[in-house]
Design a protein around this nucleic acid. Structure first.
Lengths: 178, 178
DNA sequence: GTCTATATCGGGATAGAC
DNA sequence: GTCTATCCCGATATAGAC
């Protein structure tokens, strides 16, 4: 397994957080991955930390702010995991792996509109740039990204008849873009 | 534009509903498409129909039952729109069109786990079979479906830098599977 | 098939003391 | 940074009369 490269410092979403806020964010991520976004209420998060729910608002102005931070952390982690890029086939394999290892964070980071104003500038592009590096062409990159995203999300949601997509289907997809 | 074929009667999700329930379902679809799933509350739906919210429960046992019906109607309509199949390129074009014309129903029908017990038996497979007909091979069919789904959903969510995916990206994708 | 009245729940969030 | 007490809202859903 290729070792992931670290994200440039200016893209680190946690760089301006207090230490305590970082702990809250970590707990939120743990809870998110364990029970899903719908179960991640401010009360449940407070319980996980052993504090009272209103105390959370000393660290994050709103639940929405917390969500944006989680999304940013997801983009950072996924971007890191996808580089350095060696080939289309390896990128596809790695994308599936990292999404499968953090399914709820993946869902949160990729589902619905993205509040770009709440992200470190440049993070979104940096996160997706492995696709450009692997394909060497912007439209191919977008098409490949959309294709693997579709595979991952349908797989996570159990939309394939077999539950997860058969290896043959993943191979088909990788081959078409190699 | 190719004329869509009608769905076999046994797959029609509304075949067992009372006329009034059908009207409720129609209103729900209208409201869903206008304001999105999050805004489709039982109260809002009742308002749209000019009745009181509790009256809805005479027609549908729960909101979840109503949701399942909407999903089923979506699968039926999308399946109809995608046949007869002439080519991979035409299928891809048509898929984008029909999803774009019913974005909120598309989201509802494709997002998250599918409650298969609540659907007419066979409807799910029938809805997706145009992909098999177009590719002539099951794994290719799945990969193509995932790819176009990824494109559509990222486009609906405004996830591409340009808002919607450029034509060149759609062409890339269709070409890879033709 | 519709109504009114109401139960129940749980969410996000604020005020102000310590 | 944490607490307790509390507010406010809006959601699904039920009971029972008409």
């Amino acid at each position: 397994m290729t070792r992931a490269e670290e994200c440039p410092e200016e893209f680190d979403p946690t760089r301006l957080l207090t230490p305590r806020a970082r702990e809250v964010l970590e707990a939120a991520r743990t809870l998110l991955e364990r029970d899903g976004w719908a179960a991640l209420t401010m009360r449940a998060l407070a319980d996980e930390l052993g504090i009272a729910a209103p105390s959370l608002y000393k660290h994050f102005a709103s639940k929405d702010a917390l969500k944006s931070q989680l999304v940013a952390v997801g983009l950072k982690d996924f971007g890191e995991a996808l580089r350095p890029v060696t080939s289309v086939a390896a990128l596809v394999r790695r994308y599936r792996e990292v999404a499968g290892a953090n399914p709820e964070l993946y869902r949160l980071a990729t589902h619905g509109p993205l509040d770009r104003d709440a992200l470190p500038p440049g993070l979104e592009d940096w996160s997706g740039s492995p696709f450009f590096e692997a394909t060497g062409e912007p439209y191919r990159a977008q098409a490949l990204w959309a294709a693997v995203h579709g595979m991952v999300i349908l797989e996570l949601d159990g939309r394939f008849p077999t539950g997860s997509a058969p290896k043959a289907t993943w191979d088909e997809l990788a081959n078409h873009f190699s």
